[in-house]
Amino acid sequence: MTSEPFSLERFQALADAYGGVIARWPDDEKDDALRVSRTPEGENYPRRRTEPRRGTRRLAGTGPQ
C-alpha cells in the first residue's frame, strides 16, 4: 500500500481492475476500500460499473434473467 491517503480515484481504479466485490481486491487495500465504499461516491461506483448498460441484451444462458 502507498503512503498516500486512499483516494476515490484509487478506489475507482481498483473497482475497474477487480470488479465491485471488495473481497476480491488485494488484502492491503480492503480496509481503506471498505471505508470509501461507505461514502456516497464509493457506494455507487462499483454498482454503476457492474450493472448492464441500458439497452443491452443478455445472451441466453449467460447469467440471471
Rank of each mutant, 00 (worst) to 15 (best):
T39W: 12
L34K: 10
R47V: 12
M1W: 04
G20H: 03
P40V: 01
P52H: 03
G19T: 10
A13I: 11
A60K: 09
D28S: 05
G19Q: 09
P26E: 09
L59M: 09
F6N: 02
E9A: 15
R10I: 06
Y45S: 04
R24C: 12
Q12G: 02
L14I: 05
A33W: 04
Y18C: 11
D16R: 15
E43Y: 15
G19N: 09
D16K: 15
P64E: 12
F6M: 06
T50L: 03
R54L: 15
F11P: 00
G19W: 08
D32R: 11
G55M: 07
E9M: 02
Y45C: 03
R58H: 13
G63N: 04
R48V: 11
E9R: 06
D27L: 05
Y18E: 06
A33M: 10
E43L: 09
V21E: 15
E43D: 13
P52V: 02
S3A: 14
E4R: 13
R49N: 03
R38G: 13
R57G: 06
M1H: 10
E29W: 02
R35D: 14
L59Y: 08
Y45N: 01
G61K: 06
R48T: 13
W25P: 03
G63A: 04
A17V: 01
E43Q: 09
T50N: 05
A23M: 07
D27M: 01
W25T: 02
E9F: 00
G20C: 09
L34S: 03
T50E: 14
Q12P: 00
E41M: 06
L34T: 02
R53Q: 11
S37P: 03
E41S: 12
G55A: 09
E51D: 06
E43P: 00
L59P: 01
I22Y: 06
Q65N: 10
T39Q: 11
V36L: 15
D32G: 12
R49L: 12
R49A: 10
P52E: 07
A15F: 02
A13Q: 15
R49D: 00
L8V: 11
L34R: 14
S37D: 07
D27Y: 00
Y18W: 12
R49F: 00
F11I: 06
N44C: 08
E43C: 05
T62H: 08
R24L: 15
